[in-house]
């Protein structure tokens, strides 16, 4: 019981950092929260709504994303897109990720 719980916690911690990178990488074209969620899921990354929406707001507050409300099909939707600041740091994050992956691959081989 305790083991499953700690396993879940570790997995959650591992994914948390990845989601930021995943979201930033997918927002070069603007998307609203639910469409981003579906897009991530189609590519194999299942993210909880309760994680993604607050995260998008946080990234916007940090200046990495921009957002705008648009009225579509009689429904207002908040569209997010990567900001200039976000574009600047995305390559660095990608490089960081590649480094982590190559180090861990070797370590876990």
């Amino acid at each position: 019981m305790a083991n499953t719980e700690s396993l879940e916690n570790v997995v959650l911690e591992l994914r948390r950092g990845v989601i930021v990178l995943a979201a930033l990488s997918q927002l070069s074209t603007e998307q609203y929260g639910y469409s981003l969620l579906k897009q991530l899921s189609e590519q194999g990354l299942e993210v909880d709504q309760g994680t993604l929406y607050p995260l998008l707001r946080r990234l916007e507050a940090q200046g990495l994303l921009e957002s705008v409300w648009k009225l579509e099909e009689a429904r207002p939707r908040r569209y997010y897109v990567i900001s200039a600041e976000g574009k600047k740091i995305l390559p660095k994050l990608k490089k960081e990720w590649a480094d982590i992956v190559s180090v861990m691959k070797k370590m876990l081989a």
């Binding site: 929260g33 639910y34 709504q49 929406y53 409300w69 429904r75 207002p76 939707r77 908040r78």
Partner: peptide, 10 residues
Amino acid sequence: KELRSTLEDM
């Protein structure tokens, strides 16, 4: 507003 729009989409 965002939550309502999401739920309606879903």
